[in-house]
Design a protein around this nucleic acid. Structure first.
Lengths: 343, 343
DNA sequence: TGTTATATTTTACGCGCGTCAAAATTATAT
DNA sequence: ATATAATTTTGACGCGCGTAAAATATAACA
C-alpha cells in the first residue's frame, strides 16, 4: 500500500498503466471497458484507495448518477421503511440516492425540488405531499427532471405513478368486517392531507353500496400530519358523545387507528373480537407499529416490496430511455388483509 | 422576466453589471459584499432565477457548505424527529444538510462515511451505531472530517459529544417508581446495540444501591434494531414463566416498553396505577408514540431541542475554528420525567 | 480636501474530469 | 494469415467556478 495519496485521475491512471479517458470510462460504467482492463483497474483500486472527485465528475456529465428520493413525512415509519428499500435498490444499481423529507410542508417540498433541480439528478422518486403540494411547482419540476411519483398520485404529473390500489385495501376490510360482524362506519379526517384518503372514502362508499349496506362517515377535524393525536382527539369526542353509528370502526389509516385505540383505552372501552369487547377497529396500511398496538391492529397491508421495486424499475427504464416516457403509466398494487386482534 | 436562461455566473454578472468575482463572493457569503452591491445582486436574482452550479462551486472550494447528518436507524421516529430539527438548523445557518441512515448495519455506516468523505463536507453530525460501529473506521473518518457525535458516545472519538445524561433519566424514573410503589426491576436486552443502554443499566444499579433497594435485572435475548418485537417476545416469556421479581417494570427504552405493553395486553394483564392493574411499566426516551400506547407510557423525556441545538452550535463553532477543536467536550442534558397512565 | 481603510474590478490561472476525433493497438472471425 | 471490428491511447479543449494579485474605486474620517 503506497502511502502518498492519489490526487487525481491522471495519477491513478499512471499507476494503473492505463490512459485517463479509459479510467473515466470505467467509472462511468465499469462494463464499458474490456474485462482484462477492468480487472487491472479494480486491482489498482484495491491497492490505492482512489475515488474520483464527485464534483468534477458531475460538472460536465450530461447526467449525474444521483437519484433523489422525496417523501412527505419521514417521521412516519411507513415512509422511512419504504425509503430504506428504495435506497437499497438504487445503490445496488450503481446510483447515489439522496433522501429528502418535506416534513409535511409545501415550502419544504418546493425547496427540495429546487435543490434537486440543481443537483441535476438522473431521476427522482417523489411521494408528494398531496393536497398540500403546489401542483404547479411539482409539474414544472417534472418537466425538467425524469420523475416517478409514488404513494400518492397527482393526475397527469410525472412520467408514471406507482402506488397501492386503495379500492383493494378498502374492499377487503369492508368485506371482512361486514361478513364477520356488523358493517363498519368509516373514521377519517374531514380534510385529509393525503389524496389516498379520498380514494379510500370513495371505495368505502362504493363497497357499502355493492353490499347493499348503509354507509356512515365519521369525519373528524384536524390538520397536519399528527394523525395519531388527531385520531385520538376525534375518537374521544365521538365516543364520549356516543356519536358512533355502529360498533365496528374502519379507520382510513393505521395512524388514525393508533389514536383511536388510545382513546378507547383511556375511556375503558375494550376493543377486539373477543367476548367482553364492545367495539371492533380495523384500518389500512400495515404500519410498522400496527402489530404492537393494544390490541394488535387488523389492517390491510401495502405490498412494500412490489411498490418499491416497481417504482425503481420504472425509473431505471425511464432513465435508460433518456428521460422521455412513451406514455404515462399508473400502476397500483393490491393489498393483503392482515387479521389481528382488533377486529 | 427575460426568457433566455442564464448559463453561468459570467452571464449573470453581466446582467447585474457587477464583476464575476464579486458575485462569487456574494454566493460564498452574502454579508461579505457591500449592502448596495448585495441589493443589486438580490434584485437581479429575483428577476432572473439564476443558481450557481453546485458542482463547479464545490470543486475548488477548500470547504463546501455541506453538512452530513448520520443516524443509526431512521425507521425509529425518535431519530427521524431529531434529524428534522437538526436539518432545519443547518438550513437556517446557510448550510446544505444531507441525511443518511445506517439502517442498523455497520457496512452501511462505513459506506456512508466513505461517501461523506468524498463529499468534503464542512462538518458532520454523527449518531453512531454504537456497539456495532467499526470504531477504527469512525475514528479515521473523524480525523479527516470535523465531526460531532450525538446520541451515543464513542470514547475519545470526534471533536465533541452531545447527548442525554442517562443517569438523569434513570435516577428520576427509579426515584419516582420506588417512591410511589414497589421498586422497579430493570427490563433490557442482554446485549444492547446502543451504548446508552449500558449506561442506563449502570445508573439503575447505582440508584438502587443509593436507595438501599435490591436491584433486579431482567435481561432478554434478541439482536438488531427491532426493539418492539424483541421487547414483546421477551415480555411474553418473562410473564408467562412468571419470572418478574416485582410488579413494577422499568424498561431501558420506550421501544422495548411498547413491546412489553403489547405482550401484557395479549396476556390480559392490566397495566397502570389505577386499581385493578397488576403491574406498572415505565421507560425512557419519550418516543413520539409513547403517549399513544395503551396505557400511555410514563417515561423520561430527552430534551430534543437542547441536544439538537447544542450539537449544531458546537459544530458551527468547530467549523468556524477551522475544524480543529481546542479540546474534546462532552455535554449531556438532563431528562424530564413525564408521568402518564402506565406507572 | 486629503488621507486611509475597505470594496470592487481586472486579469489570469487552475481545479479534476468529461468528451471528442484521430491514430494506434488489440481481439475476433474468416 | 488476413480482414474486420472493438477497444484503447493520444492530445486537446472546455465546463463553471474559486482564487490570487494588482489596479482602481468607494466610503469614512479627520
Amino acid at each position: 500500500m503506497s502511502e502518498d495519496r492519489i490526487r487525481n485521475m491522471d495519477e491513478f491512471a499512471a499507476l494503473c498503466g492505463i490512459s485517463r479517458p479509459t479510467i473515466s470510462k470505467y467509472f462511468n460504467n465499469p462494463n464499458s471497458v474490456r474485462a482484462s482492463t477492468r480487472d487491472r483497474i479494480e486491482a489498482a483500486l484495491r491497492e490505492y484507495d482512489y475515488r474520483p472527485n464527485i464534483y468534477a465528475m458531475n460538472q460536465n456529465r450530461r447526467l449525474t448518477k444521483n437519484i433523489g428520493i422525496v417523501v412527505p413525512y419521514l417521521a412516519d415509519p411507513f415512509f422511512a421503511e419504504i425509503a430504506r428499500v428504495i435506497e437499497r435498490r438504487c445503490i445496488d444499481a450503481g446510483f447515489t440516492p439522496t433522501l429528502f423529507s418535506s416534513h409535511g410542508e409545501q415550502s419544504q417540498e418546493n425547496a427540495i425540488l429546487d435543490t434537486l433541480r440543481s443537483l441535476r439528478p438522473a431521476g427522482v422518486l417523489l411521494a408528494p405531499l398531496g393536497r398540500a403540494s403546489s401542483k404547479k411547482h411539482v409539474e414544472e419540476f417534472c418537466r425538467d427532471v425524469p420523475t416517478i411519483l409514488f404513494d400518492s398520485n397527482i393526475e397527469g404529473v410525472g412520467a408514471a405513478f406507482v402506488g397501492s390500489d386503495n379500492f383493494s385495501f378498502v374492499s377487503q376490510t369492508v368485506e371482512y368486517l361486514s361478513r364477520t360482524g356488523s358493517a363498519p362506519c368509516f373514521f377519517e379526517m374531514r380534510n385529509p392531507a393525503n389524496p389516498n384518503a379520498n380514494k379510500r372514502r370513495d371505495a368505502y362508499l362504493e363497497m357499502m353500496r355493492r353490499l347493499d349496506l348503509e354507509p356512515h362517515l365519521v369525519q373528524i377535524d384536524g390538520n397536519g400530519w399528527g394523525f395519531e393525536e388527531i385520531g385520538r382527539a376525534g375518537a374521544l369526542k365521538v365516543l364520549q358523545q356516543d356519536l358512533l353509528p355502529t360498533d365496528t370502526v374502519l379507520c382510513s389509516n393505521d395512524r388514525l387507528a393508533i389514536g383511536f385505540l388510545s382513546a378507547c383505552h383511556e375511556l375503558g372501552i375494550r376493543v377486539g373480537r373477543e367476548e367482553g369487547c364492545t367495539i371492533r377497529v380495523a384500518s389500512h396500511d400495515d404500519h410498522p407499529y400496527s402489530r404492537f398496538t393494544c390490541p394488535s391492529l387488523t389492517t390491510a397491508a401495502h405490498d412494500y416490496e412490489a411498490v418499491s421495486d416497481h417504482a425503481v424499475e420504472t425509473l431505471f427504464r425511464l432513465i435508460d430511455a433518456g428521460g422521455r416516457p412513451d406514455k404515462r403509466e399508473e400502476t397500483q398494487f393490491a393489498a393483503r388483509l392482515i387479521m389481528r386482534a382488533s377486529a
